[in-house]
């Protein structure tokens, strides 16, 4: 009996302390270096997670990062499995109809990665080629719209890069930081792959943090924090940490 009472007290304390520092759970698909990835200790690291942690510190909440597969990441948000998606989500009109977005935290273009010896320098050269991207990403939407190509969708961008590396694909389209990370930084892929070009777009593409429609409370905290870290230089420091030319 005493044991049970003790257990209840411990439980209450545990719950109480959680309530003090508000926890916000962010879903992250950690397969997208350098934006989001797992390090050797299975910790979620990258530009995105650093930004989220900094936002949390600035806005006074405890961010909890939850590694979630991209496929279904928005369904999980709608189902209330987490409060937000911070996983290099491009802000698009279609997505805005089902979710609310924070202020943009990054601008991306779509980068095209090819084999080093390939003679592909523009969208026109892609005609008749097999190109790929990650399913449900803006890269794949772009790939599908290019005329005369065979567009394939992969579960993870890494699998598409692997197939490109093995010569089964002609090109892979991904967010520019990710494309250049694979093509320029990766010790193995960079030997065989190159960042051929980036696809020019009429409208700039921004990444934002997605929350469920109407979740103003969380959105306000995120925007507050983002504004603060942009003002106090922390954002620039994180940016430099991940994207400074090495």
């Amino acid at each position: 009996m005493l044991q049970r009472a003790f257990f209840v007290v411990v439980l209450m304390v545990a719950l109480g302390s959680q309530a003090l520092a508000k926890e916000i759970v962010f879903a992250v698909d950690a397969t997208y270096p350098p934006m989001e990835m797992l390090d050797a200790n299975k910790q979620i690291v990258g530009f995105g997670p650093d930004i989220v942690r900094a936002i949390g510190k600035a806005a006074g909440f405890t961010p909890v990062l939850k590694n979630t597969a991209w496929d279904g990441i928005f369904a999980g948000l709608a189902a209330g499995k987490y409060d937000a998606v911070a996983s290099s989500v491009s802000i698009t009109e279609e997505r805005k109809q089902t979710m609310d977005f924070s202020e943009p935290y990054f601008e991306v273009q779509q980068g095209v990665v090819t084999a080093k010896e390939a003679k592909i320098t523009s969208v026109k050269d892609l005609a008749g080629k097999t190109i790929a991207s990650q399913m449900g990403t803006t890269g794949y939407f772009v790939a599908k719209k290019i005329e005369g190509v065979k567009a394939k969708s992969y579960d993870e961008i890494g699998l598409a890069m692997e197939d490109l590396y093995n010569g089964r694909l002609d090109a892979v389209i991904a967010d520019s930081p990710v494309a250049s990370d694979y093509a320029l930084q990766h010790p193995q892929y960079s030997k065989k792959l190159k960042l051929a070009f980036t696809i020019a777009s009429d409208t700039p593409e921004y990444l934002g943090i997605a929350v469920n429609k109407g979740n103003a409370e969380v959105l306000k905290l995120i925007n507050e924090g983002l504004k603060k870290i942009k003002a106090n230089g922390e954002y620039d420091a994180i940016y430099a940490k991940w994207f400074q030319k090495k």
């Binding site: 496929d71 279609e94 089902t98 449900g136 969708s153």
Partner: peptide, 22 residues
Amino acid sequence: SILAVSDLLRRGREFASESFLY
């Protein structure tokens, strides 16, 4: 569908990932 073969399930997943109609 894990091999990016466009089978029935993959087509469904592609549709869902764009339309959010899971």
